Amino acid sequence: MHRLVYVAVATVLTLAGAVPANAAPLLRTAPSVAVAAQPLTTTTDVLSVWGAGPYRIGASLDRLAAAGMIESPVATCDGVVRAGATGTWAGVILLAFRHGRLVEVNTATAPPYSPAGAGVGMSFADLETIYGPRGSLISNDAGTATAYLVRVGARVELFTGHPIRPGVGAFQVGTASFVERDFRQGGTC
């Protein structure tokens, strides 16, 4: 009987979109390039297109705020609210909500790394080695910035340049309609 209940709950969550049908547990392995040879060992090691820890893409701003999981929310424009994280993620990630839903998680630190082992501080050549044909270099619409983009369905991993040295300075994940569009068009405001 218990097994039937678990199957029913998993089916309902999948159909409701709360759990992606093709979601698999993240394997916590060491990054695959020598630049980031530290093994992933803490709860703040992995940032994926699904989010980071309790900060899941699509999560409600109101729910996270009520749980004390965000700090310093600032409304910008076009229904976008930017905020910091609390707890073990404080100072590690920044969050963007659009119309009350989490659409982007951004970091300028290493860790966290992507499930493939990519992160801040690597070169774009390192990313090409890690992702191969799954990713590509892109430019913004103005042609003034370059980033490395990895698509995963309707979500993306985006690695943008560093302002004073070559390589990755920021790593963002979230919905392509927000993250990629924000990079290509220069922001929502």
Rank of each mutant, 00 (worst) to 15 (best):
M1A: 14
H2W: 14
L4E: 15
L4P: 05
V7H: 09
A10Y: 13
A10W: 09
T11A: 12
T14N: 10
L15V: 10
L15C: 04
V19W: 02
P20R: 15
A21K: 13
N22I: 12
A23Y: 05
A23R: 10
A24N: 13
L26A: 14
L27N: 09
R28W: 10
P31D: 10
S32F: 06
S32Y: 05
Q38C: 09
T41S: 14
T41M: 15
T42K: 11
T44E: 03
T44M: 07
V46N: 04
V46K: 06
V46W: 03
L47M: 10
V49F: 00
V49K: 00
W50Q: 15
G51L: 00
G51R: 00
P54T: 07
P54G: 06
P54M: 07
P54I: 07
Y55L: 03
Y55W: 02
R56M: 09
R56L: 14
I57H: 05
A59M: 01
S60F: 01
L61Q: 07
R63A: 08
R63I: 07
L64F: 00
A65P: 02
A65F: 01
A65I: 03
I70L: 10
E71L: 08
P73H: 04
A75P: 11
C77K: 12
D78A: 13
D78R: 07
G79D: 07
G79E: 05
V81C: 13
R82I: 09
R82C: 08
A83Q: 06
G84Y: 10
A85F: 08
G87W: 08
T88I: 15
T88F: 11
A90F: 15
G91P: 02
L95G: 02
A96W: 00
R98P: 01
H99W: 07
T107W: 01
A110L: 09
A110F: 02
P111E: 05
P112T: 09
A116Y: 05
G117Q: 04
G119I: 01
V120Q: 07
M122Q: 11
S123G: 11
D126A: 14
E128V: 04
T129Y: 12
Y131I: 14
Y131G: 10
P133V: 09
P133E: 15
R134I: 11
L137V: 14
N140H: 04
G143F: 05
T144E: 15
Y148Q: 06
R151K: 15
V152W: 00
A154Q: 09
R155T: 08
V156W: 00
T160I: 10
G161K: 03
G161C: 04
P163E: 05
P166F: 03
P166E: 13
P166A: 10
G167Q: 11
G167E: 08
G167Y: 03
G169Y: 00
V173C: 00
V173K: 00
G174C: 03
G174D: 02
T175F: 04
R181Q: 09
D182P: 03
D182T: 08
D182L: 01
R184C: 03
Q185V: 12
T188M: 07
T188P: 06
C189W: 11
